[in-house]
Design a protein around this nucleic acid. Structure first.
Lengths: 111, 111
DNA sequence: AAACTATATTCGCATAATCGAATATAGCAG
DNA sequence: CTGCTATATTCGATTATGCGAATATAGTTT
């Protein structure tokens, strides 16, 4: 049970462990969107968005509704969005350090 | 800014995206622990624990205190633990489905 | 200094994640 | 049925992650 819970948490975190998927979840907090709308707003190729959506879908973090030939995505539970708020607060609580961290990683990514 | 924030969130999630690291964070909510204590409680090799701790340390999610020849780890901010509570609630809100998800993944991992 | 304990780092390998390109499916319009 | 649009899946190459084993560092004890 304990292990299942930890495994579950880790998998949800893994699903959120990409800026594109964070963006998708953020956008879906406002209401449902089609794949195309998500592509535009996030600024990513259709195929790529679809792959990221598949990851969120497989974890049941988003649910879909089909209307005509398009598919609307929405967040399964607002709780998932609230987690982002927590991290937002955390980010600003340690703002300078957090920014420094991101810059440092960019540095070493280039070198 | 928006992108930095998303990048930051994704990196924190990535750092939490492993059951061992989830376990470490859970344990540190209760107070500081040495590496050895963490190894025992989590049930993992010393070198492995050290690698996971390095990941949390690099993201400044844990901080350390040296005393003699041992090092105590503690959580940087209780907010990180609260995120786990959110996911705990989420897990139980969809318990049957969540368990089914874990089982399904175990299946396909073996086959 | 030598031996011992606690912790960290490096290395090599196996597995998984990401992306763009190409292809597939499904609904709709003519 | 044909073509068109929306979405999903597969493929192949590249990069990242996780592990155990070995090695390194730092503090402690003798």
């Amino acid at each position: 049970m304990l292990h299942s819970l930890r495994q579950f948490k880790a998998e949800i975190f893994q699903a959120l462990a990409h800026p594109t998927r964070v963006a998708i979840v953020e956008l879906l907090r406002e209401g449902e969107l089609t794949v195309n709308q998500l592509c535009e707003k996030v600024g990513v190729e259709q195929a790529n968005a679809s792959q990221h959506l598949a990851i969120l879908r497989n974890k049941h973090m988003v649910v879909t509704r089909k209307e005509g030939n398009q598919i609307f995505y929405r967040l399964r539970d607002p709780l998932l969005g609230e987690i982002l708020d927590k991290l937002r607060a955390y980010f600003f609580a340690y703002f300078d350090e957090a920014m420094a961290m991101l810059r440092a990683e960019q540095q070493e990514a280039q070198s």
